[in-house]
Amino acid sequence: MTDQLIGAHNAHNDLHSEQGARPGEHPGRSANPIIKVTDVAWLEFEKPDLVKAEAFAQSFGFATALRTSDELHLRGSDADAPCVLIRRGQREKFLGPAFVAAEQSDLVRLADATGTTVRPLPDSLGGLTVDLVDPSGLPVRVVSGTHQLDALPAQTPHVFNFGHEVARANATQRPPRVPATVRRLGHIVVQTPKYIEALNWYLEKLGMIVSDFCFYPGQRDRGPIMSFIRCDRGSLPADHHTLAMALGPVNRYVHSAYQVADLDALAAGGEYLRERGYFRSWGIGRHIQGSQIFDYWRDPDGFLVEHFADGDMFDNTLEPGWAPLAASGLYQWGPPPSRDFLGVGSARETASELAAMVDALRHDNEFDLSALRGLFAVANS
């Protein structure tokens, strides 16, 4: 094991993956990152209809922090900055994530190392930003000193009777069928044909560390093709992944995930969405990497969003786990992944995906014939 993993312990077998790294494989962290971000702050989108976007957002469990004719800020109940920023635009578009710097001085260090500048954010957000572009071409902001919103009332997790342990007596359990109050933004998942290059960029520039690697079945020697990446907060546990990244034929937003109180909030909130005609993409189930209880929905603009509860939390001592990527390996229990979740919900989507794969093979990137074979192996799994 390289010196990049000094201090890490070998707990993957029992915690989060079937096996650990082999000698010489990617260490999952940088020995000397420029800075270490502490969390994801928000995601930015363009959408043509802010009224429609806000209606879904409130049914999904967001609160509105700011609403103008051209801008919509959505927030969770935690005391923090807004977690979704939507600007009016002619078409639906994901604009990129913003991450939180540990110290304002980190912005100066990051700007100096990347040849950029520290700039003020709009007055509605406050604070400062360094605006970067990752190797995939995705705009990435690193921010500090933003306005902190006061906490809002949140749903209280239920008290459960487990086995013979009675914690609830003479009291009923009647979770109301209401929107599942979003507490905070948990993670963002993206796809890129420059996976390794982009992965190393986040580890070296932002100090993030890998919780789990996935590889194509039978192709471990080519290296990882997906990673679940967390923030390095030292001994303070962080979400199993704040960013997940996968090799694919095009740059693509895959989904974003928002924490709710517990399974009851997630399930009752899902019924609320279903009754209002919104489309469930996949769920309810429990993931393997990250262990989250999940429920995926499509918003009216086609973006995939997830309610989650009970996710893994790791400090910086855990080494990355390694596991083959398979559709059947995405969940411990629940229904199998839907065609919509896998991006082939219709004949048109399937044809579009195949065309993207063929086009990617014509360009100089990491999506090659072995990657194409690997994807088909995953689909057939």
Rank of each mutant, 00 (worst) to 15 (best):
1 M>F: 14
3 D>I: 10
5 L>F: 12
8 A>V: 06
11 A>N: 13
15 L>H: 14
17 S>D: 12
22 R>M: 09
24 G>S: 02
31 A>M: 05
40 V>Y: 06
41 A>I: 01
42 W>I: 01
49 D>C: 04
51 V>H: 07
53 A>Q: 06
58 Q>E: 13
58 Q>W: 04
62 F>C: 00
62 F>I: 04
62 F>V: 00
70 D>S: 08
77 S>I: 03
82 P>L: 07
84 V>L: 00
84 V>N: 02
85 L>Y: 08
86 I>V: 08
90 Q>C: 06
93 K>T: 15
95 L>M: 04
98 A>T: 01
98 A>E: 03
103 E>L: 08
107 L>G: 07
109 R>L: 09
128 L>F: 14
128 L>V: 14
136 S>I: 06
138 L>E: 13
140 V>H: 01
142 V>Q: 03
143 V>P: 05
143 V>E: 06
144 S>R: 10
146 T>M: 15
150 D>V: 12
155 Q>V: 11
156 T>M: 14
158 H>S: 15
158 H>E: 15
162 F>N: 11
170 N>F: 13
181 T>I: 15
182 V>S: 10
182 V>G: 05
185 L>H: 11
186 G>M: 12
190 V>K: 07
190 V>R: 12
196 I>N: 08
207 G>E: 05
207 G>K: 04
209 I>W: 10
209 I>S: 14
213 F>V: 09
216 Y>Q: 02
220 R>N: 02
220 R>L: 03
221 D>M: 07
224 P>F: 02
224 P>R: 02
225 I>V: 13
230 R>P: 10
230 R>K: 15
233 R>W: 00
236 L>I: 15
236 L>G: 13
238 A>H: 02
240 H>R: 07
241 H>P: 08
242 T>D: 10
242 T>Q: 06
243 L>A: 05
253 Y>P: 08
255 H>V: 01
257 A>T: 10
260 V>C: 03
265 A>T: 13
267 A>Y: 14
268 A>C: 12
269 G>H: 05
275 E>C: 11
278 Y>F: 09
278 Y>Q: 06
278 Y>A: 02
282 W>R: 00
284 I>L: 12
284 I>V: 14
287 H>I: 11
288 I>W: 13
290 G>W: 10
295 D>I: 08
304 L>K: 13
307 H>N: 11
311 G>Y: 02
315 D>Y: 06
317 T>A: 09
322 W>Y: 11
325 L>I: 12
326 A>F: 00
334 G>K: 03
341 F>T: 11
342 L>N: 08
346 S>P: 00
354 L>S: 09
359 D>C: 10
361 L>N: 00
368 D>Q: 01
374 G>S: 03
375 L>R: 15
375 L>P: 01
378 V>Q: 09
